[in-house]
Nucleic acid binder design. Sequence first.
DNA 1: TAATTGTGCAACCTTTTGGTTTCACAAATA
DNA 2: TATTTGTGAAACCAAAAGGTTGCACAATTA
Lengths: 119, 119
Amino acid sequence: MRRDVFQGIADPTRREILNMVAHRPLNMDTVAEHFDVSRTAIYKHIKILIECGLVDVKQQGRERYCEAKLQKLGEVSDWIDQYREFWETKLDALEKYINELQSKANTETKKKKNYGKQK
Amino acid sequence: MRRDVFQGIADPTRREILNMVAHRPLNMDTVAEHFDVSRTAIYKHIKILIECGLVDVKQQGRERYCEAKLQKLGEVSDWIDQYREFWETKLDALEKYINELQSKANTETKKKKNYGKQK
DNA sequence: TAATTGTGCAACCTTTTGGTTTCACAAATA
DNA sequence: TATTTGTGAAACCAAAAGGTTGCACAATTA
């Protein structure tokens, strides 16, 4: 099964768990008590968070403390950043494309993109 | 079914679709041809992207052009930003918690968080 | 007009997701 | 020692995700 950060944060319960343990490490049951689904259900969510590297577990006596490893969020952040200009300049894809066409027409540059209909 | 941006970008195929149409609007089949799964499978992905507001469709004759609406990525970006200090300062949750404890001990402030074991 | 092209959708399938209840077990506590 | 507490895991379930094939149909093109 696919286990990447994007999937890790896809579920709202998991984002809530992350938010809890981001502030301070918490043991399993403390996390679970915060939700109205079963303890086991929360364990499964935590397991997924562990598998995709967003949470780390430290044993302490019989308790297991979850702590957030938020560095992984950087992957998502980086992915988004490459598109930031598309929305922060208030241009949508179409406007941006038209701009590209116009500058191409003006400077007679050769094609760089390859998604076009090539038939 | 849940339809938010987090879920929209959870699937790698959908991220790839988004990347394609971010650069310029493309009609359905052009997008579909780029993948080795069936056209219908890609349509379903596009449908999800539409439902969570990341893609918009413009009819043009019998063709339907998908264009990216990347503003929605801002929601994810904002969510991540609230945790940025946790990883960019190179502190993990535990260190940060210890720091919090220390400053509390020093200034005798009252508790603000409520995730603690209150039993 | 006939054939092709771009699309939508229904029906169906398998795997994953998100949940449950139940049992087991070791550590801490009365 | 007996009980409570924190955890793990198995067995099971319904629904959602992600995929398929096949048909329908209107717009375009030969």
